[in-house]
């Protein structure tokens, strides 16, 4: 289990993270969404044990990460721009990682190399950006980490490769209960593989939720009445958002689907629809004012 408690990090005059609390269960895929400069990379580097927090605790299975070699053996971090030693081939890089990570599996490495059809003898820096990223994934997965930390991993990959990698990741999560921490500036990129989502804005984690729970909990209601909308119903529903288009009213409401439907039907509307929300809509309505500020990351 990954835990961050009241974590703050400051770079000279710039407060990158402030009082971040976060917890991730083993085997889950956690997506961190935030615009550029929101603090995603800082948070990731704290998790990976690269940065040292100013305040608070960054713990995995109850022990601090920083300079903890036993823990770092279980973590693999792929930065937003994968970096390798200059003039290193995939084979040399693999040997280097093998020397560092005790769980390295040569078998797995060979299997992945075959799957992706990588030329082992070619210098990594001469590959295209997309290829370099695939090689980074191959190396990472060969190290059999318990926690995989990915900073903007899908950037620069074509849809086919994206699919391939996503499958591999999901496979590892299912088979080995690997935990994945993944960041993105765009929710759509990762919504299909994440089961948890956290949103970071200006150095603060403004919400984190399980995706299924989110979707089940919030609805769009379209109703029309012969007269006005009954005041009592409005009070009961307490909508997050209301809109009126002609005689049709639109509410965003929270609650159980069945009980909501029952309550509304009792007021005899002329028209009544209960619709699911897209993820983007959920975030925007859930977070009220801030929701608009971060619209660009969820749409």
């Amino acid at each position: 289990m990954i835990e961050m408690k009241q974590v703050s990090k400051r770079f000279d005059r710039f407060q990158a993270l402030e009082n971040v609390n976060l917890s991730i269960q083993k085997g889950s895929i956690y997506g961190l969404i935030g615009s550029n400069g929101a603090g995603k990379t800082t948070l990731i580097k704290l998790l990976a044990g690269i940065y040292r927090q100013d305040n608070g605790d960054v713990m995995i299975d109850g022990t601090p990460v920083y300079e903890n070699i036993g823990l770092k053996q279980k973590i693999f971090y792929i930065p937003d721009h994968p970096y390798v030693f200059s003039h290193y081939t995939t084979k040399q890089m693999a040997r280097f990682y093998k020397n560092c990570y005790s769980n390295w599996s040569e078998e797995r490495f060979e299997m992945l190399v075959e799957l992706f059809e990588v030329n082992l003898q070619k210098k990594i820096q001469t590959f295209s950006k997309g290829w370099q990223r695939q090689i980074a994934f191959i190396l990472a997965l060969s190290a059999n980490p318990e926690i995989l930390i990915l900073d903007e991993p899908m950037d620069g990959l074509d849809p086919v490769v994206r699919k391939k990698i996503k499958n591999l990741l999901i496979n590892d999560v299912a088979e080995r209960e690997m935990t994945i921490f993944i960041s993105s500036h765009n929710l759509r990129e990762i919504e299909d593989i994440c089961d948890h989502i956290g949103i970071i804005h200006k150095g603060a984690l403004i919400m984190q939720k399980e995706l299924d729970e989110l979707k089940a909990d919030i609805h769009k209601v379209q109703v029309a009445y012969r007269n006005d909308v009954p005041k009592q119903l409005l009070k009961k529903l307490n909508p997050l958002h209301t809109e009126k288009r002609g005689s049709v009213s639109l509410f965003i409401v929270r609650g159980n689907e069945d009980s909501l439907a029952k309550q509304i039907r009792e007021t005899n509307p002329v028209i009544f629809d209960l619709l699911p929300l897209t993820l983007e809509e959920i975030f925007i309505y859930e977070m009220g004012d801030i929701g608009y500020a971060i619209k660009n990351v969820v749409v």
Binding site: K45, A48, G49, I50, E67, I69, G70, L71, K72, Q73, I75, Y77, P79, H81, Y83, V84, F85, C100, Y101
Partner: peptide, 14 residues
Amino acid sequence: KQASDLMHSLPLKR
């Protein structure tokens, strides 16, 4: 920066 991140993400004591 990148080299520094790589070296310090590895399970190696300083």
